[in-house]
Amino acid sequence: MPENLAIRIEDLSIKYKINVDTKRTLKNAVMRASKGEAVRTRTVEAIKHLTMDLPHGSVLGIVGANGAGKSTLMRSIAGILPPTEGRIIVNGKISTLLALGVGFNPALSGRDNIILGGLASGMTREEIESKTDEIAEFADLPDGFIDMPVRTYSSGMYGRVAFSVAVSMKPDILLLDEALSAGDASFKEKSFNKMRELCAEARTIIIVSHALATINDLCDRAIWMNKGTLVQDGKPDAVVEDYLKFLKVGTLPSNYEDM
């Protein structure tokens, strides 16, 4: 893989196998087997033959309708979902903020969750403990809330802490899936600045967002996914414009057939 690439995706396909039948229990399995029925499954192709290269230091935006496969792509880049076909090569340390809150435990305080999240992502205890204050400061919660159980947080406060944890990991590659949707204007400003700072350090960022202005604002490249395939890849304003057109009229761009 060329040195300058952060991520290379080669002919990636990901399929989910869903049991159509009721609950997946041993009881049902035995019942079905005794009646000689096979398990009925449905296969959902979330990503179909996607190929893409992403150089270091780029900020990629991903747009697409609900169910287009954006979160699935992010999870596979993070190494959480294994590819069904093809392969992904990632060069660098990854920090993920996939959906809100990296499995935050609602009964624990924000501070405890920060420590837990840091340890899970492979930091040592000293590293994460030296950073908790910095993270708490960046999240800038109202008085003392960082030591309150997370269940008492508003969704914006939750999002603030999660984002602060993700950026504090000093990742080479930062994956943000709808991470900025709950923050208020002032935190949005702050997080945009933080991301620009990360870009300046040649870190790679991938942002999934339905707020198209965010994509336009932050990214230097955008892709549009539709039903698991790559529809368009280019400058954010062009991609967003075509995507908006598609949302209104429902037509895919004319050059789509060639891709």
């Binding site: 999870r75 993070a78 190494g79 959480i80 990854i94 993920t96 996939l98 959906a99 809150g101 990296v102 499995g103 935050f104 999240g117 899970a120 992502s121 492979g122």
Partner: peptide
């Protein structure tokens, strides 16, 4: 029971 953690982080 670790649903969220498993879906969002690789370890």
């Amino acid at each position: 029971a670790g649903g969220r953690l498993i879906l969002n982080q690789a370890f």
